[in-house]
Design a protein around this nucleic acid. Structure first.
Length: 487
RNA sequence: CGAGGCGUAGCGCAGCCCGGUAGCGCACCUGCUUUGGGAGCAGGGGGUCAGCGGUUCAAAUCCGCUCGCCUCGACCA
């Protein structure tokens, strides 16, 4: 594993590009997601989508463009996003055949500029006003899969791109309790997905007021720690109170025939999860993908010395692959004659395939295969029958092993700290999660951020209450909070 | 937006200081031999040297301006 943060950011960019996940596009901050990266995203989308539907949500789609005035309807919301909005001002371009230039046609200026959605609360709440009239219309549980644009100043592939893909859930409820329960439920769904499918341990918590989503009353988050010691917010779920209902005047008649504003939530995870996966499990050879989401779970590499061997080895490779496929395993036979086995070994390791199967003349003779485990590098020889029979459980075992390995890493990078100098020293030298007491004020939080670069990632939900004194001011505190430098 | 670095073939780079035929590795095409950890040999194709302007007989090279990219900061739900 690379050591310094600087090395890791170079390693990261190189892995993303060389593994064929994505590449930079002509537009700064925007990326082209390549087939392998897209396949990974599809494997992330599918189980999430199923989980949303299993809890009563329905998919819908709302427009990419939002009238500028909509954003302004919720004061905190617009303030939170104003700095990073792309705006459409014209609907036609002018061409000049002589100078061969094109430019927006000044005659074709929009009366009201359109914001390219940075998130869809406003356009969705505009629609919800017409969808909600009675308590019988509630709860309204909507999700959309979409792209959004936030004009980030310092983009990074997957982790922070100007355009990114995500899902955003938007729900409306009759009571605050119900909306809060929804926000908590979605947090649990995210935590469960990220831990089980991506094998990434997370800390569930609440955001402090400073870190809260613009327009939310309460923001819940799952936070993880990447291999370079920096924290990443992997998903968020917001209790929006009645802020958007009031801004967009969405009221319903309750059973007593009285008008009430609805209570809301919104929640989302994005293609950032791909970045989190890369930076949770990767090593010096490249990607290490968790089997549940790996586009290819097993790659079979036939090895031959002559045409005759090639025919029989490739045939057996496809026979094995078919048997594995029938067990529901995503498998690829790499019989490309362009490259030799050694090249393929390196290539599929770079691309993070969990199990590699090598099949050569020796194996054909002995009815065996050579297996190589991506996450440990270990190589073993097994009867071909075992492969087919046990592959599924091997993949399960790798999935668990990756989680446990990441958990052990994060535990090791998590420090309980009671003195401010110690906290500063840790954050500066090695990064990581720092659990420390905090007096609960934004002033202290900002001062610590100013001096150390670290922010409060969350107030953990499952941490025990514990009497203590603020690491910065010495004032009383009842719980440790999680500090870290973040992406 | 600040600080550093960099723009030369698809990718990675040398050449620039000291002006004079645009090169190397990988990739690509053809052929043969190879194939259990990134194959070898031979032949071949591919360039507005980021752009614009200046100096000069002559500019990838010197000077000026512009644009873009990367890393680190600031910013970021």
């Amino acid at each position: 594993m690379p050591i310094s943060m600087h090395e890791i950011s170079e390693w990261y960019g190189e892995v993303v590009e060389r593994a064929g996940l994505a590449e930079h596009s002509p537009v700064r901050g925007c990326m082209t997601i390549k087939p392998y990266g897209w396949a990974l995203w599809e494997n992330i989308q599918r189980p999430l989508d199923e989980a949303f539907k299993a809890t009563g949500h329905q998919n819908a789609y709302f427009p990419l463009f939002i009238p500028l005035s909509f954003l302004a309807k919720e004061a905190q919301h617009v303030e939170g996003f104003a700095q990073e909005c792309a705006v459409v001002t014209h609907y036609r371009i002018q061409t000049d055949s002589i100078s061969k230039t094109v430019a927006p046609d000044p005659e074709a200026q929009l009366e009201e500029p359109l914001v390219v959605r940075p998130t869809s609360e406003t356009i969705i709440w505009h629609a919800f006003k017409n969808w909600i009239h009675s308590y019988r219309d509630l709860p309204l549980l909507i999700n959309q899969w979409a792209n959004v644009v936030r004009w980030e100043k310092r983009p990074r592939l997957f982790l922070r791109t100007a355009e990114f893909l995500w899902q955003e859930g938007h729900t409306a409820h009759a009571t605050a309790e119900e909306a809060m329960a929804e926000a908590r439920q979605m947090l649990e769904i995210y935590a469960d997905f990220v831990q089980r499918y991506l094998a990434i341990p997370v800390v569930k918590g609440r955001k402090t007021p400073t870190e809260r989503f613009a327009g939310a009353v309460e923001t819940f988050t799952i936070e993880t720690l990447l291999i370079d010691g920096k924290a990443l917010q992997a998903g968020t779920s917001h209790f929006l109170g009645q802020n958007f209902a009031k801004a967009f005047d969405v009221q319903f008649l309750n059973k007593e025939n009285q008008l009430e504003y609805v209570w809301a939530t919104s929640w989302g995870v994005s293609t950032r999860l791909i970045g989190a996966t890369i930076l949770s499990h990767g090593d010096e050879k490249g990607l290490v993908l968790p089997p549940y989401v790996a586009p290819i779970q097993i790659v079979v590499i036939p090895i031959w010395r002559n045409e005759e061997e090639r025919t029989s080895v490739v045939e057996q490779a496809f026979t094995l692959a078919k048997a594995l496929q029938q067990k529901g395993i995503r498998v690829k036979v790499d019989d490309d004659p362009q490259h030799r086995p050694g090249w393929k070994f390196n290539e599929w390791e770079l691309r993070g395939v969990p199990i590699r199967v090598a099949l050569g003349p020796r194996d054909l003779e002995a009815q065996t295969v050579e297996l190589a485990w991506r996450h440990t590098g270990e190589k073993t020889t097994h009867p071909q029958d075992d492969l087919v029979r046990q592959a599924q459980s091997w993949l399960e075992r790798i999935q668990v092993a990756l989680y446990e390995r990441a958990k052990a890493r994060i535990d090791k990078q998590t420090y309980r700290v009671d003195s401010y100098p110690e906290m500063k020293e840790i954050l500066e030298s090695k990064g990581g999660f720092v659990l420390a007491h905090w007096d609960g004020t934004s002033e202290t939080e900002l001062a610590i951020k100013e001096e150390t670069g670290a922010t409060i990632r969350c107030i953990p939900l499952e941490a025990p209450l514990e009497e203590g004194t603020c690491v910065y001011t010495g004032r009383p505190s009842t719980q440790r909070v999680l500090f870290a430098k973040a992406y």
